[in-house]
Amino acid sequence: MTTTHKRFCQAVVERCGENFQRCLHCLSCASGCPVVAAMTYRPNGVIRLVQYGFSQEVLESPDIWLCVGCNTCTIACPMAIDIPVLMDALREIALENRAKINETGILNFHKEVLDSIQRYGRTHKLEIMMRYKVRQRDLFSDMDLGLKMMAKRKLDLLPSRIADTKSVSKLFKEFKG
């Protein structure tokens, strides 16, 4: 292993504060993961890639974006490794290093949610969905569903906003990076 490889692994350990070097590669995590079918390497594979320092493979993998943080893996893991926290850290590192992101839809969705919180202090679902669709240049999928939800008043036209938007936007300025 080269030093760059080692350095990457160390940086990830430091970033997430989770010692995934304890991983036994027993596959318990992968066998229960609800999105494993859509993944390329699977949760334990992601850990393996980090251990071997394959930074590009792991940072460009769809797996880190597909993980929904459901903790199914962590309760199955005999070593109680917090895989979602590792995935959180890998996503952040991928963004900071401008890695090529193959799940742009998921990233765009997260960005729209955060923009909404920045604007209102809360999420405005209708606007998030519309802006997401525009960003994706995909205006028509789920159109029926959107209309149905509007008819059931599940999507409010106007946002609910907090009074003290200032303190929230201050957080965004400080931490959005």
Partner: peptide
Amino acid sequence: QDWNCCGSSSAHSINSELAFHLACR
């Protein structure tokens, strides 16, 4: 009074510091 979004899955997915502070408020 004046609660804000907890950050939802999106904040901790791409910005865990922000997620922490949103929850703290």
